[in-house]
Design a binder for these strands. Structure first.
Lengths: 133, 133
DNA sequence: TGACTATGGTCTCAAAATGAGAGCAGGGTA
DNA sequence: TACCCTGCTCTCATTTTGAGACCATAGTCA
């Protein structure tokens, strides 16, 4: 059994206790960083600290509401820190914490995979639709 | 500039064209595999092929509706293949395709990260809540 | 015969998450 | 006076998800 084939057991680590799967550490963490926006902002902040408005302009298709919420969730998880400068109007800067930076490395593997295989996935999607029609 | 700090540019690869960000290959791919259930089933199927009912029992907190849909999406993207056996009642088996298997490796990095740091994240969440109160 | 099992789904309706857009404080600028 | 800028929050509509009933088929038990 290769190391990869054991991945599933990591998800099931807590399956013994009630609601164990929902509390599984891996799912717990991946549910957050695997949402629609988190990885994108972690990548942007990995480049350099950004202000709120910079992030909004960098990702025009997020609503301000979700941007606020995503940043707060990342902050809550200790991946991002928030710094308010008492200028007028006040400006707010977001940065990766060391914990957030440590995520850049494994994330980069996933991104490399996506770059390498997105053509194959597009082909598969086309194929699938052709068969459905 | 380290390799990791350039991650953001991969997301922005298509920012030049209209709606480029939404069509960005990386976001396109990560949006799918980063949903609430996909990584979990890819991991399970990485262990061995599973039947529909096995997957449902392995993940009791998914609704049958979402299980069906998640599997169909993975199949559409060419990560999972579906095999129907004409028994009575018919049984259906799902397996990873080679493309799906190639995802196990980068995924394992992320899972290792989650295992390593979930304690820190829980601590951060507790800290955050304490400050809010 | 009738009730019940199991399989892999679909359909409908309610609940939850998200998007769109307005509003807000508070000082700057014209 | 009127308007801009910042980083939000609030409300309401749309979209996504969850819960649960329903379906066809055939076997099993009484």
């Amino acid at each position: 059994m290769t190391e990869q084939s054991r991945i599933a057991s990591r998800f099931k680590a807590s399956a013994a206790v009630p609601q164990g799967l929902a509390n599984c550490p891996v799912r717990n963490v991946l549910d957050q960083i695997g949402d629609k926006w988190s990885t994108l902002f972690i990548s942007l902040l990995g480049e350099k600290p950004h202000r709120f408005g910079e992030l909004r302009r960098a990702v025009p298709d997020i609503s301000q509401r979700m941007l606020t919420q995503t940043l707060r969730d990342l902050q809550r998880d200790g991946l991002v820190s928030r710094h308010v400068y008492p200028t007028v109007p006040p400006s707010v800067e977001y940065r990766l914490t060391p914990l957030g930076q440590s995520l850049l490395e494994p994330l980069s593997h996933l991104i490399r995979w996506a770059e390498t295989h997105h053509a194959a996935i597009r082909t598969a999607r086309g194929e699938f639709q052709r068969q459905a029609a």
